[in-house]
């Protein structure tokens, strides 16, 4: 087996996992605290990528663009919460799903109107565009390492935020008993808006980070949201730890499955059968894993304590 390839693909898997975590953490945060299913989370991820792409062209620097885009996408999240999500909190999940499905159509078409139907390639600054030799024979793009670094930093930051700050305390309290928190005089409405904006910033950041690799495109939101759902289902909806573990696992399985499943299949079936079945199985792999996990643990791997 080619160990260099294995190492590089593992690194790619971790990078995908961390991106998934950025999207899934916002989703699980919003669901855990607000009990709100936000289908449009993927569209926020996509809008983040487009805003960042435009700002990269205006400012000429990707990193500055990211820093300016973050508060903007937070504001977008805040507005969505005020205008749409807020009214839906008291409704059932079906209404959440349909309402945010409508929101997806609105956001996607607005992006189409503003930026046009084609995707946007986002140029990187020169020092990020290169490759680094980690050790003998293993060369990886610098930018992928940056994504991994940022992903880990955000994960650590969220861990600190949720477990060691006043806001985090309120978030945890709000997740386990909302009525009690508001009865204790906490402005739950502002807390909700803040959480929603934070979730939007996390998703937006993921979109910005991936755009230099894949380019910003309208369809990118719909592609990631389902995988992010798989992540939070497997991890246990509402659990930050679950989202992190599941995101890394799903990212690794998906990436490694796509590149090595045919080799694996060739061990016990004819090369031709392996060539035809491997793509089909690897396309379904994460869903099969999800089904297996749910068959044994219907609440996911780390279900949050019952409220």
């Amino acid at each position: 087996m080619d160990y260099t390839l294995l190492f590089i693909q593992t690194l790619n898997g971790v990078q995908l996992g961390l991106l998934l975590f950025l999207v899934a953490s916002g989703l699980t945060l919003v669901f855990g605290i607000l009990d709100f299913v936000n289908l449009a989370h993927g569209s926020i991820y996509m809008v983040g990528a487009f805003i960042c792409a435009s700002l990269t062209f205006i400012t000429g620097n990707f990193l500055i663009a990211v820093l300016i885009s973050l508060p903007i996408i937070g504001l977008v999240g805040y507005l969505i919460e005020r205008l749409v999500a807020r009214t839906l909190y008291s409704r059932n999940h079906l209404d959440h799903v349909l309402g945010t499905f409508g929101l997806i159509l609105v956001l996607d078409t607005s992006v189409h109107l503003i930026w046009g139907p084609a995707g946007f390639a986002v140029p990187l600054p020169e020092w990020l565009d290169g490759r680094v030799e980690l050790f003998e024979g293993v060369v990886v793009p610098t930018f992928r390492l940056l994504i991994i670094g940022v992903g880990l930093a955000v994960a650590a930051g969220l861990y600190w935020l949720v477990n060691f700050t006043k806001l985090g305390m309120l978030i945890r309290a709000g997740a386990s008993n909302r009525t009690m928190v508001s009865a204790l005089g906490i402005d739950i409405s502002t807390l909700f808006a803040l959480v929603f904006a934070l979730g939007a910033m996390l998703a937006g950041l993921a979109g910005m980070l991936i755009s230099p690799i894949t380019e910003a495109s309208i369809s990118m939101g719909g592609e990631i949201i389902i995988t992010a759902f798989v992540v939070i289902i497997v991890g246990g909806i509402g659990s930050m730890k679950g989202a992190f573990v599941a995101a890394i696992v799903i990212g690794l399985i998906d990436t490694l499955g796509r590149s090595f499943l045919d080799d694996l299949f060739k061990l016990f079936m004819s090369p031709q059968a392996a060539e035809t079945s491997a793509p089909a199985v690897s396309a379904m792999l994460i869903y099969i894993i999800m089904a297996v996990i749910l068959a044994f643990r219907p609440q996911g791997l780390f279900p949050p304590r019952v409220r």
């Binding site: 669901f31 299913v37 079906l94 389902i226 759902f229 798989v230 909806i237 869903y287 749910l294 219907p298």
Partner: peptide, 10 residues
């Protein structure tokens, strides 16, 4: 929500 998301994933 689990049901919604799982049917979607399948």
């Amino acid at each position: 929500v689990y049901f919604i998301m799982i049917t979607m994933a399948f």
